[in-house]
Amino acid sequence: EVTIKANLIFANGSTQTAEFKGTFEKATSEAYAYADTSKKDNGEYTVDVADKGYTLNIKFAG
């Protein structure tokens, strides 16, 4: 089991951190699914992958 950390960075400057656990593939998939659901309210996003994929910096356009 691994933990994927997602740092969500919103257009207004606020941030949120979420953690997803499971296999690398499952946790990563859940992090992207979470970003997709947040996209409806926060606009399109880009992802900067860090820490060999264990940290995702997800920046929303607003």
Score class of each variant (00 low, 15 high):
E1R: 10
E1M: 13
E1H: 12
E1W: 15
E1L: 14
E1Q: 13
V2S: 05
V2G: 03
T3F: 06
T3P: 02
T3E: 04
I4S: 00
I4F: 02
K5E: 04
K5N: 06
K5G: 03
K5T: 15
K5V: 15
A6D: 00
A6S: 04
A6I: 15
N7L: 12
L8C: 05
L8F: 14
I9C: 10
I9W: 11
F10R: 03
F10L: 07
F10A: 02
A11W: 10
A11N: 07
N12G: 07
N12R: 04
N12Q: 05
G13K: 06
G13S: 05
S14R: 13
S14F: 13
T15R: 12
T15C: 13
T15L: 10
Q16K: 12
Q16N: 08
T17W: 10
T17I: 11
T17E: 08
T17R: 09
T17F: 11
A18T: 11
A18L: 15
A18P: 02
A18G: 05
A18N: 08
A18V: 15
F20N: 00
F20M: 02
F20R: 00
F20Q: 00
K21D: 04
K21V: 12
K21T: 14
K21Y: 13
G22C: 03
G22E: 02
G22A: 05
T23P: 09
T23E: 08
T23K: 06
T23L: 08
T23C: 07
T23A: 07
F24S: 03
E25G: 08
K26H: 12
K26Q: 13
K26T: 12
K26L: 10
A27W: 03
A27V: 04
A27T: 03
T28W: 10
T28Y: 13
T28A: 06
S29F: 12
S29I: 12
S29N: 11
A31F: 02
Y32M: 11
Y34G: 01
Y34K: 04
Y34A: 05
A35M: 07
D36I: 06
D36P: 01
D36K: 06
T37F: 14
T37V: 13
T37W: 14
S38T: 11
S38Y: 15
S38W: 15
K39V: 14
K39M: 11
K39P: 03
K40C: 12
K40V: 12
D41Y: 14
D41W: 14
D41G: 10
N42R: 09
N42S: 08
N42V: 05
G43P: 02
G43I: 04
G43R: 03
G43C: 06
G43W: 05
G43D: 04
E44V: 09
Y45V: 02
T46L: 07
T46Q: 09
T46I: 11
V47E: 01
D48E: 15
D48R: 09
D48N: 11
D48L: 12
D48C: 14
V49G: 04
V49N: 04
V49Q: 06
V49E: 07
A50Q: 14
D51E: 07
D51A: 04
D51T: 02
D51L: 04
D51N: 08
D51V: 02
K52F: 15
K52C: 15
K52Y: 14
K52Q: 14
G53E: 03
Y54A: 05
Y54N: 05
T55K: 04
T55C: 06
L56P: 00
L56G: 00
L56T: 00
N57A: 04
N57S: 05
N57L: 09
I58M: 10
I58K: 00
I58G: 00
I58T: 00
K59F: 15
K59Q: 10
K59H: 13
K59P: 01
A61H: 14
A61Y: 13
A61Q: 13
G62T: 09
G62P: 09
